[in-house]
Design a protein around this nucleic acid. Structure first.
Lengths: 344, 344
DNA sequence: TTGTACGCGTTATCAC
DNA sequence: GTGATAACGCGTACAA
C-alpha cells in the first residue's frame, strides 16, 4: 500500500496506552470519550502522522460509499455537464464515484458493471442506452437511470412531452404557417419520444399544419449537416413564402441547421424560427443565440443521486422495505427564448 | 454489504472440499491447478453464484488499482474530452478512476486528495491549477499533471510553444500586414504562456509587425464577448485596410471573435484571419469552421496514464528506485487549417 | 499440486 | 467510559 509501514490503530493504541477499540471510537463516536482523552489521541495522530484507511473500514462495516456510473461518452456536452453535477453532489452526500464510459458497447458495459459490483458499490447510475432496464433490475442493487428506457428501474427524466409542448406553443404563438419537427427515429419507449408526441398533440389540438421528419441519424457532424441541408432545400421549396417554425431535437442540430440557413440565405431568413432542446452550451455560443427547451441538469443530477441515496439507506436498515414499484421522477424543462424566435 | 450473506472462498472451499488457498489460486494462478480441479471449482462458482470481492483483496495485497483524478470542471470541453480519453485507458491498463471536481477551490481540493489517499489510490492525475506542484510532490505518491504548473512533479503537456509558432507561421504565410495575439494574462510558469512566447519569437524572427493583447479574463461568455468587441473595434480602427492575422488563445474565444466580426460586417471580413487553439468541438461547429492548433488529447491522456503506471509499477518492486527528477513529457500539437485562414 | 496459519486495518459485540 | 476478541474476505509464506 504505502512505501513504509502504515500507522494503524494498533500503533496509536500502544502510543497512547488505549485499546484499538477506543481509537476506533475516537473517529466514529468521539462523544463517548472524555475530552481529555480525545485530546491525547488527537495529539498522537499528529505525532505519528496517521492516515486513515477506508479500505479496511469498508471490509469491516460494509459501507463503501461508492456509487458506480456508466455513461455513453463525455464528448456530448449533455453527459459531461450531467457528470459534473453528479460529482458535485459529493459535498452533500459524501458518496464517491467510480466511472466507466460505455461507448455503446453492451458487452463492455456488462463487464464494467461486474467490476463495479466487485468493488461493492452501493448504487448505480446509468445514462447509457444499451442494457435493457429489465436486466438492470436483476442486479439486486439500487439503480437510477437518467433519460433512457426505464420500465423496470427507478429513473429521473426531463418531462420531454412538456418540453415538446412548450417548444411547439412558442412557435405557434408566433403565428407560423407551418410547424416542423425534426428528430431521429427514436423508440416510442425512449423518453425522447415525448418530444415528438408533444409536438404532434399541440399541433392537432390547435389545428396547425405540421410535418414531422424522423430520419435524422446524426452519428457525426458531417452526416447531420448533409441530412439537414436536404431538409432545408425541401422546406425552402415546399413552403416558399410561408413562415416556418422548426422544433429540432437538440441544440447541436439546431446550430447546424442555423448555420446552413445563414450560409444559404446570407442571413438568418425572416421566415424561419428555430427552437432546439437541451440548453447546451452551443445554443448560447451560436452566431445567433438559439431558443431552446432547457433541461435542468443540476436538478436532474441532484434528484438522481438523492433517489439513489434513499434506496441505499433503506437497504441498510435491519428490515429493509424494497420499493414495490420503480419510482420515476420527472423534471420540468424550462423554455428559453432567444433570438431564433424572438427576432428584434 | 449485500442483502444476504455473501458467498466467500470459504463456502466454495467447503462445497468443493478444497482449501481456501486453492480457491484463491484458481483466480490468481490457475495454472497451478489441474484442469480437472479448475473445472470443479468453476462449476462451484456458478452453483453458488459467487461474486468476487475486490475490497477484501485490496486489504490483503494492497493493490487498489485506483487512480485519483482532480479536474477543475467538466463544462469546459477540453477537460471532459480529456477525462473521456483517460477513462478509456481502462481497457489497456485496468485501473479504475475516482474523480473529483475541484471548482478552483484549493481547500476543497486538499480534502479531496485526503479522501483519495484514504482509499489508497495508487496514483494521482491532476488537471486543476490551484495546489502548487511543490505541495503535490510532498504527497509521497506517484503523480502526473496535465497542462499546469509542474516544476516538482511529472507532467504531460502540449508543446504550447510549438503551437504558438505553428499558428503564427500559418498567419505569416498568408502575408498578413499585422499579427495579433489575444490571450489572458497567464503566469510565465504556466504551460499556456508558451503560446505567447511562440507568437512573439516568430514575429521577431520574421520581423513582422505584431501586437499582443493579454487582458482577457474570460470568466464568462458575456465578459469575453464584451472584451473581444472592444478589441475588434480597436483593430478595425487602428489597422483599417490592413490584413489582420489573429491568433487567439482558445477555440471558444475564437468562435466569439468570429461571431462578433460576422455580425459587425455582415460577413466574415476579407481582411481578417483567425487561428484558435485546442481543436475543441466548437471550432468545427462554428458557422465558419475555425483553423486551430489541435491538442492531441488522446495521446496526452494515454501518456499521462502510462507515465503514472510506470511509477506505480516501480513502487511495487522490492527495491523501488524513485525518479531522481520529474519527467516532463511533451506532446506535439497539430495545426488544423480550416476556413478562417484558407479562404475559398 | 494442495493445505495450514496468519496477516491486512478496521468495526461490532459483548463484557467490565 | 473502556477493553478483549472475533469478525470482514482474501493473499501468501511456509509446510507437506
Amino acid at each position: 500500500m504505502g512505501q513504509k509501514k502504515n500507522v494503524t490503530f494498533n500503533d496509536i493504541a500502544k502510543y497512547t496506552n488505549f485499546s484499538k477499540t477506543t481509537i476506533s471510537r475516537y473517529f466514529n463516536n468521539p462523544d463517548s470519550l472524555t475530552l481529555e482523552n480525545q485530546e491525547i489521541i488527537a495529539k498522537a495522530l499528529v505525532d505519528l502522522d496517521y492516515k486513515e484507511n477506508k479500505v479496511a473500514r469498508i471490509l469491516a462495516n460494509g459501507n463503501t460509499e461508492f456509487i458506480g456510473i456508466i455513461l455513453p461518452n463525455l464528448f456530448n456536452n449533455y453527459y459531461s455537464e450531467m457528470l459534473d453535477r453528479i460529482l458535485s453532489t459529493y459535498e452533500q452526500f459524501g458518496y464517491k464515484f467510480l466511472i466507466f464510459i460505455g461507448n455503446e458497447n453492451e458487452d463492455h458495459e456488462r463487464s464494467y458493471i461486474d467490476e463495479l459490483l466487485a468493488y461493492k458499490i452501493e448504487g448505480l447510475i446509468i445514462l447509457s442506452h444499451t442494457i435493457p432496464s429489465k436486466e438492470l433490475a436483476g442486479l439486486q442493487i439500487p439503480i437510477v437511470t437518467i433519460e433512457r428506457e426505464d420500465t423496470y428501474v427507478c429513473s429521473v427524466n426531463t418531462d420531454n412531452y412538456m418540453g415538446g409542448c412548450q417548444a411547439t406553443c412558442l412557435l405557434a404563438s408566433h403565428n407560423c404557417d407551418i410547424l416542423i419537427h425534426i428528430n431521429s427515429s427514436c423508440d416510442k419507449k425512449s423518453p425522447t419520444y415525448g418530444r415528438v408526441q408533444g409536438f404532434i398533440d399541440i399541433c392537432q389540438e390547435k389545428h396547425l399544419p405540421h410535418e414531422v421528419y424522423l430520419k435524422m441519424t446524426g452519428d457525426t457532424y458531417e452526416t447531420a449537416q448533409k441530412q439537414l441541408s436536404e431538409i432545408v432545400d425541401n422546406l425552402d421549396q415546399k413552403y416558399a413564402g410561408m413562415k416556418k417554425g422548426i422544433f429540432i431535437s437538440n441544440d447541436t442540430q439546431a446550430n447546424i441547421l442555423l448555420n446552413i440557413l445563414i450560409k444559404k440565405h446570407k442571413c438568418f431568413p425572416e421566415d424561419y424560427l428555430i427552437v432546439g432542446f437541451d440548453n447546451s452550451l452551443i445554443s448560447r455560443e451560436a452566431i445567433i443565440p438559439i431558443s431552446t427547451v432547457g433541461q435542468q441538469i443540476d436538478k436532474i443530477a441532484y434528484e438522481a443521486v438523492s433517489l439513489l441515496v434513499e434506496q441505499m439507506n433503506e437497504r441498510k436498515k435491519r428490515r429493509p422495505v424494497p420499493l414495490k414499484e420503480p419510482v420515476h421522477k420527472v423534471i420540468t424543462p424550462i423554455l428559453i427564448r432567444r433570438e431564433t424566435t424572438e427576432k428584434e
